[in-house]
Every structure is written in C-alpha cells, then in structure tokens.
Amino acid sequence: MAAHLITGAGSGIGAVLAERLTERGDDLWLLARDARRAAELRERFPAAKTLVGNLADPAKLSWAFGHQALPVELDSLLHVAGVVELGRVGDLPVKAWQDTLNVNLVAPAELTRLLLPSLRLAKGHVVFVNSGAGLSAGAEWSAYAASKHGLKALADSLRQEEHAGGVRVTSVYPGRTATPMQVKVHQQEGKAYDAERWIDPESVVRALLTALDLPRDAEITEITVRPGK
C-alpha cells in the first residue's frame, strides 16, 4: 500500500486527489493548518492520518512536526495547497508578497526538506501543482506568478539533486481550474464566474496520477494542462 502526503486536501484539486487515492486503498496523510481543520479532514476522509502545520508560517513547521509522528516511508509528497492575491506591483503591500511566497514557495521547500528522509527511503515522488502563471506572468499576477516561477526552480533543482537516489520530481502546470481559488480570482478581477469554462479538477488529478503511476523506467518531469473549451 502506497503512502502519500497531500497539502490542500480540503478543497479543489487536493480534495479530488485525496478522494481518488482513498478509492485505491492507499495510505493518506493530510496536512492541516490547525487542529480544527484536521478534524474536518478526518471526518471527510476517516481512513486518513492528519498532520498539523501552518504553511503560512513555514519557519514553525519543523517545530510542529517535532511533536507529531511522521511517516517512516513516503511514496509521494503532493504539494497542492496555494493562495493567490492579485494586484498591480505599485499597489501590492509587503504582506501580500510575504503571505504568497510563504504558502506557495517557502513552505513547500521546507516541507520537502523535512520529509526527504522518508521519501528517500521509499524512492518516492514529489509533485508540485504549479500553475500556468509559473511559466508566464501577466499584469496584476506578479506576486502569485513570482511564487510559482520560484516553485518551478525549486522542482528543477530538487530533481537534479535527488535523481540519483531514485526520488522523482514532477511539476504540473494547470490552466484555470474550477476551484474555490478560481472563484476568488474572478472576484478580484471583477468578473462573473462560470465553472463550465474552466478545467474540471478531476482532469488535473487524472494527469497527475499518470505521472505518479508511471513505471520506474521513466519519469514525467512536467505536465501542462489547459482548458479544452
């Protein structure tokens, strides 16, 4: 039975991913920002184990994990959680930059560092759910795109560092996907939201699982998923 740790399992892509892995009978570890969120995740995924650690405060993740049992061997670490704050460079305050970079970049780096021993033992797989904004930045997307460009760099470096030891690394670049984050984006853009225009989270998860399930003789390093309509 494979063991997976997922961030962002409470909604959107992360929730669908947790559902599909649960259906397969895999062993799930779900990261929650606090005890209340952990209880909600256990209610939704009764077979899963939870870890508490706030991605918004990555400097405290090591301390938090020091008080909890971690998986000894981990087949995959799936970075799905993220935040977005749109705004022009001339308007975005420092806090918006710090909050975005903490959750989207610094926390994944720290979480990966803390769990690398477990991943190395299993010759596991690190998957970063990035974004189309990790490849190209548009107006008012500076903070989010910067965090996602950084996440691509993190994945690329990690892949080169860990390849010889058997740890695989994949970046997934979804276009606009019908998730609660996309609802927030539309609110910030002042646009009407129509879920039918965007990618179903299920489609992103199917692409991700293709990389995760690939035989060991090959590695999918990058997947770009775009709306088909």
Results as ranks from 00 to 15, higher is better:
T177F: 02
G190E: 14
V167M: 07
A178G: 07
A164F: 03
W198D: 13
R168G: 00
P180M: 12
W198R: 05
Q187R: 15
Q160E: 11
T179R: 06
Y173Q: 03
V172H: 06
V204N: 04
Q188C: 04
L154D: 02
Y173P: 04
K184M: 13
S171F: 04
P174I: 01
R206G: 08
D194L: 08
D194M: 03
D194S: 11
P174G: 09
E189G: 00
W198T: 02
A155Q: 12
T170I: 11
V205K: 09
D194T: 05
S171V: 10
A155N: 02
H186S: 11
Q187N: 11
Y173E: 07
V172Y: 03
M181A: 14
T177Q: 09
Q182C: 08
A192P: 01
A153K: 08
E162H: 04
Y193L: 06
K191P: 01
R159S: 09
T179H: 08
E161N: 04
S203F: 07
R197F: 00
S157R: 01
V205N: 03
Q160N: 07
E202L: 13
K191W: 06
R206Q: 14
Q188D: 10
V172A: 08
T177I: 06
G165C: 02
G165D: 09
R197D: 08
A207D: 12
A192G: 07
H186F: 12
G166H: 02
Y193F: 15
S203Y: 07
P174D: 02
S157T: 12
R159E: 11
V185Q: 04
G166P: 05
M181W: 01
P201A: 08
P174A: 05
L154H: 06
A153Y: 00
I199H: 02
A178T: 07
R176D: 14
T179G: 07
V172T: 05
A195K: 13
P174S: 03
G165Q: 12
H186N: 15
P201G: 10
K152N: 13
A192Q: 13
A178P: 08
E202G: 12
M181E: 10
D194V: 06
K191Y: 04
M181G: 13
W198P: 05
D200W: 00
A195M: 03
W198I: 00
R206C: 07
D200Y: 04
Q160P: 01
T170C: 14
E162M: 10
W198M: 09
L158H: 07
L154Y: 01
L154A: 12
G190L: 10
P180N: 14
H186I: 12
K184C: 00
H186D: 15
M181K: 02
Q188S: 08
E189R: 15
V183N: 01
E162T: 02
E189F: 03
E161K: 05
